[in-house]
Design a protein around this nucleic acid. Structure first.
Lengths: 347, 347
DNA sequence: ATTTTTTATGCAAACCTTTGCACAATGTTT
DNA sequence: AAACATTGTGCAAAGGTTTGCATAAAAAAT
């Protein structure tokens, strides 16, 4: 039988209420009593039962994370370890623990959320959105339950979210390539229906327009989630009469696939073609050549998400906000000024 | 005000006990009552308050994970996302959530553990040991609190742990290289004080002995945690009169560092020297050339750890066990049969 | 028709805290 | 010395479940 607050009270010759007040540093307790009680607590190795505490305070000091469903696939993407690291770090330093759960399918996922929310298991929830969780978002909103979305919701504008600006990031990358003299810049997305694909394409498009270059369909292509999936698209690009001098890819993995494909076919990066990735994963700095990429501040997003959620739980403002974490271009050897022989060709 | 079990009971015209029994599928409840109560629960959107439940059952259905302290550094290593993925997946499918916490320093870490254990926040704990947590292990053991260690404890033999066999893995790698005709095999560890460095070295040593080859000091060297740290050691090896025909490194990152260093100095892998990594991270399959590595089943370790912990919590056996997850050699292009011109040189 | 067994339900205590309110003791003002 | 303010503590209710035991109703056995 574990030792409780009344054991401490008895031994200290005070009431449980007093012990409770000592623990919460209630100003009304005298120095003397406080010291005495603390000593007994120490002696007995007392630690409050959090369940009992939560039951009365209606507070758990837990932050919930719903892991994206096909955990299998998505976890590979360094994204999740990075963001969770951010969340846990911030949470811990604010006195919160992080509770993770996941569901095998949409129904189970929703059940998990209900369990956490209605079962009062967590004080707030961070949704790692990579798909349509609109249903769950509605559920949380209806109940006015504290939550923040990492990413972007298409249907709900009036929620708290933490995200990066993919349009701006792609715009910056494209613009920088243009400044370096590249004129024939290709864009290789992931699966086209992903928001991130669309957003980054927009940025690319915008920069091109601004610089007065037309959008050329043969420079726009699509890969999947894997390096292999980039192969065909890469070769198609390089077989064009006016091959691009630079390729912007939507992810380091795809950039990797492109570089490997070119290499396998006797073409060097960046000599024959510059390649840019996204997300600045370990891979990008390790590759030969190291891949220029965009650090979209994933760790920082985790920190921000936890911070914002905790503020919301405590009722310190927010309530509605869209927090954008700044990105940063990381220029590496996979990019160079376009080769003279390539540059002069025009489309 | 949230809706409680008595709201349901009232509306269904039964007592709270009955509702409780309906929820837990108590066999004594009649079909009719059960159906009636379930309908009301549905209507009212009732969900039990887990805190209250935990308070009386002394059970939380939470698994705790203590994240290694310098979370910063270690998280980079894909290890943690993999293992957590395994843990969460298994936990979820067994009706458990996973609660993560961390401490900034040793004291905070211990405080966190006490909070979880004595505060009855979790039913069991998974320790991700990468350092001396002996103190915490003692604490858990003394209290007879369910926990499993991922890794190995030097001081405590009689605990449940999940690990891979690094000695055997390195032995297998070395043996395979010997079989391919390599005779001059170097070994590059990480920081030498790490258990993993020691174990893998043992395996290497053992295979060499068995094959009748002497241990040659100039072939044993040490790198750090990063690719850069491997540079000097790699060049030292290649500058030897009898340069090795193969290098076994303790981690893919180090293998990567070696490959890059050789490349920068005009040497090709595997033509000039074969290189083997460890851990089979994304990097190893993405590298040019892809790195032969050892899959030590990290995801599977997560699964096993969660599985074993849950069994222990439920009192289904275990109690003391050392579970070894099998490894698997993943042979890739960074290894080839030694070049004839290299082979004939002898030391 | 009575007793026994079985089946289905309810009562109330217990789990461990926190906290509003009342109260006692001490110190301060008139 | 009386009235008042201040300070420190305790009482008891509340929070939402589960569960051992008792009991009522129904079914089965005598």
């Amino acid at each position: 039988m574990a030792i409780t607050i009344v054991d401490v009270a008895l031994k200290a010759g005070v009431s449980p209420s007093t012990v409770s007040r000592v623990i919460s540093n209630d100003s009304r307790i005298s120095q003397k009593t406080s010291k005495k009680v603390r000593k007994i607590m120490e002696e007995l190795g007392y630690h409050p039962n959090m369940m009992a505490k939560s039951l009365v305070t209606k507070t758990t000091h837990n932050l919930g994370i719903i892991l994206p469903r096909p955990a299998e696939e998505l976890f590979r993407n360094q994204f999740f370890s990075e963001i969770i690291r951010g969340i846990v770090t911030k949470a811990a330093s604010s006195g919160y623990d992080v509770l993770m759960t996941t569901g095998i399918n949409a129904d189970e996922e929703e059940a998990a959320v209900r369990r956490l929310v209605q079962g009062r298991v967590v004080d707030g929830i961070i949704m790692l959105s990579s798909r349509q969780d609109e249903h769950i978002i509605s559920f949380l909103k209806d109940r006015n339950f504290p939550f923040v979305l990492v990413g972007r919701s298409e249907h709900h504008a009036d929620i708290i979210s933490v995200d990066n600006d993919n349009v701006a990031a792609a715009y910056d990358v494209t613009k920088k390539l243009l400044e370096q003299g590249h004129e024939r810049i290709a864009f290789m997305s992931g699966p086209a229906n992903l928001t991130v694909s669309k957003d980054r394409f927009s940025g690319y498009h915008k920069a091109l327009l601004e610089a007065g270059f037309p959008l050329r369909n043969e420079y726009i292509c699509e890969a999947g989630f894997t390096a292999e999936s980039a192969s065909q698209a890469a070769m198609d690009l390089m077989n064009l009469k006016n091959r691009p001098t630079a390729i912007i890819t939507i992810d380091d993995v795809i950039a990797f696939g492109v570089i490997r494909t070119l290499w396998n076919n006797g073409m060097l990066v960046p000599e024959q073609c510059s390649v840019v990735g996204f997300n600045n994963t370990i891979m990008s700095e390790m590759c030969l050549p190291p891949i220029a990429s965009v650090d979209i501040g994933i760790y920082q997003m985790g920190i921000s998400a936890a911070h914002t959620l905790i503020s919301t739980i405590k009722g310190e403002g927010y309530g509605q906000a869209r927090i954008i974490v700044p990105h940063q271009l990381i220029w590496r050897e996979s990019v160079s000024v376009p080769d003279a022989s390539n540059v002069k060709t025009t489309g």
